[in-house]
Amino acid sequence: MSKRCVVFGLVATMVAGMFLTSSLVAAKAITIAVSVPRLSNPFFGRAVKVVQEAAKQQGVEVIVLDAGDDSAKQLADIETMIIRKVDGVILAPNDQEALVPGVEKLAKAKIPVVTVDRQVARGDYLAHVGGNNVAGAKIAASFIADKLNGQGTVVELLGQPGSSPALQRAKGFEEVMSKYPGIKLIVQPANFRRSDAVTVLENILQANPNIDAIFTHNEEMGLGAIQVLKSRGFKPGQVIVVAFDTHKETLQAIEDGWLQGNIEQFPDQQFRTGLKILLNYIKAGVKPPQRDNYLTPLLITKENITQSEKYGE
């Protein structure tokens, strides 16, 4: 008998759980979905929180979707949201090509979509808000080249293959670096992940013990690189490290002298702006003055650290 109770208890819990979660989202005027490539990436984890908080203030319900770095999963999530008839979508596409059909499907269903941070190659989206990745990477490249006086070995750790920030950051960085024949460039993908960066950099150091600078496509890989430098007995500043995107840990690394520069793209502002554009359109049918909006990136160093979005948090 007791076994039977356990089983019925389990089933009842399952049923109750699903009813409970459904009742939480009932009876709200506007519901939007926010879909990001990987929620366990702190950059997107924070972005989602920013959207949730800003939306809450306006009484807007947010459905959070995690693609788990899988374009097919993100497409499937979008399909589900079309059936769910959400009022709008904030999308950070996992891949700039693979998500084009998703954006087109949303357009067909007359659901407005704003892409933030990452972009799709084409398609009928309402707006894009993002950093200027090419410009940011150029700033990083010039900074490194100046510090090295145009001579040395530079490692570039790439973000996730096929994602727009990785492509644009590589483009900007390598464009500037190609002007310096004295700089030897070692390029490897580390997928925006700290653990991947550790492995990749350790392997690179096996073959090239004397590297002079490291540029990483995001802050997670930058922190992974610093971790390796520390464990290999390097001194702070011995190898110049420049990363994209700031957060609490990177600001600390700048103050400690491990990170020389950090490209600030103001992601909080990006996502808030994206939400504002989306809600303006849903509530009042107002389209933004321009479709593609790029915020100017800023190089954060020890000197101007207070200008970072996350300073003092």
């Binding site: 076994k3 356990v6 939480l24």
Partner: peptide, 29 residues
């Protein structure tokens, strides 16, 4: 269905694990 209902992805994984276990327990029972 958890996406349709709007459950956050992290608790989704927990629910998924519980349902896998629940299904197997039910079968064994």
């Amino acid at each position: 269905v958890l996406n349709l209902v709007g459950v956050h992805p992290f608790p989704q994984q927990i629910v998924k694990g519980i349902i896998i276990l629940g299904g197997v327990f039910l079968q064994r029972w």
